[in-house]
Nucleic acid binder design. Structure first.
Lengths: 237, 237
DNA sequence: CGTAAAATTGACCATTTTCAACCTCGGTGG
DNA sequence: CCACCGAGGTTGAAAATGGTCAATTTTACG
């Protein structure tokens, strides 16, 4: 996948005005720290399907997702893909256990990130216990989500997987944008399949079945949850 | 120094003599801090199948696993179980995103843990950036393992799952005890099945097939890796 | 509009599950 | 000492869920 040639401009907006600050890492920072951080971050835009970082690449930066949606995935040598998560504004990306990324991240639709070079950012956080605790909090929350997803992948039927995905995705969108009857699905059916450990055909069939059962209405780029209670029941079961 | 998979007598409560310190959280601490920590931790023994903490229970402690093996799992309301990981000596348990545990942990065989009450431990770490960074490191490593396991659960065949499990488990044991031709499997077939998202029958059949193919030798409580290269190839593929 | 990509649908197939029977081994009590 | 018991494990046959392959429809976009 191509890498954007567009250079990052200085962040243009000040951190104190940042729309997603409350959802992000930066919620833990005071005014002075935010002013310091402004000098470290650069806003960068990525077009649809551009790769922000890739599996095996050296880690050089951390990213705060500002706008858009990203997919995080791992590839097996033979090309099989598992999407381990979708990122929304406020999510912090780039933490890795080693010096190389263990997964790839690319844009689903246009994306803006706030990029921090690794070394300066590491220096910035190293003696800020409140920020370290905040990063911990985010890491532990992600770990918990990962464990929930393992249950889904290992122990749920196709229908349960799709219902659980729709409910979980709706909840995340509600968190950001407030309640809504329709659930935007910017990712492709293939993305959903690779997230749920299914094939695209099974995802499609399951959507169709849920529509026949009047649980959802299918529209291009979104679904409407006609019977949220039924969907939630399938997701809980 | 050999790390036992079965609990024996604690070698004393002195952190500086702790056999698993190098593998644990405590590797980040200096002598003074270790002496302080000694007053916070208590060794506790659990018999086989006893629960150390359970899903939905209030979090009250953190645990450093000293001896033995534990399974970490989540249950669906209808009883389906997904084991999200096995813990070995040195692993740190009890981090949770909320005030309640999101998973259950119980002993496979006899276990010794070093228990830290939540509040004093939180106070101990709160202004120790090096320790916070160490906890981060452990959390990120666990997250990375979780992501690897998602790939396994979502995208691998039964045979690949079993081979990947055996190789991964062997590598963890080698890390602790040094090289060995036989791989101890203290967990039951049902545990392995619930870890790999399979049924016990499929696990059993796959073991048998690997034995027929002269990749492994099956013994009660362990397997020997007759053809590690073949097994590794299956795990990588 | 017209074309290519994405999504859906259908028919068939394979892997894994389900259900059931049967070993194996260790412990227990006659 | 040995027969019995039960838990854990293995094996077999049938069923089913989801996958594969192929054709068709729908959508996005120049």
């Amino acid at each position: 996948m191509k890498i954007s040639l567009v250079a990052g401009e200085p962040s243009g907006q000040v951190c104190t005005d940042c729309a997603i600050r409350q959802f992000s890492l930066c919620a833990a920072l005071d005014k002075a720290e935010l002013r310091e951080l402004e000098h470290l971050g650069r806003h960068i835009h990525f077009a649809s399907c551009e790769t922000v970082f890739a599996q095996e690449e050296m880690t050089s930066s951390f990213y705060n997702l500002m706008e858009g949606v990203m997919r995080l995935y791992k590839l097996l040598p033979d090309g099989r893909r598992q999407i381990v998560g979708f990122s929304l504004p406020g999510d912090f990306l780039g933490l890795a256990a080693s010096a190389r990324h263990s997964l790839s991240a690319d844009a689903i639709g246009a994306v803006t990130v706030c990029r921090f070079s690794k070394v300066p950012f590491a220096r910035f956080i190293e003696d800020k216990p409140h920020l370290l605790r905040r990063i911990n909090e985010l890491a532990v929350r992600e770990l918990s989500q990962a464990q929930d997803h393992m249950v889904l992948l290992g122990r749920r039927s196709a229908e349960e997987k799709v219902a659980t995905f729709l409910i979980g995705w709706r909840d995340r969108l509600v968190q950001l944008n407030g309640p809504s009857t329709t659930v935007a699905l910017p990712m492709s059916r293939q993305d959903i399949a690779d997230f749920l450990g299914l094939t695209i055909e099974t995802v499609s069939r399951t959507f169709t079945k849920l529509e026949r059962d009047r649980v959802i209405g299918i529209m291009p780029g979104s679904v409407s949850l006609l019977d949220p209670a039924r969907a939630e029941a399938m997701a809980a079961a």
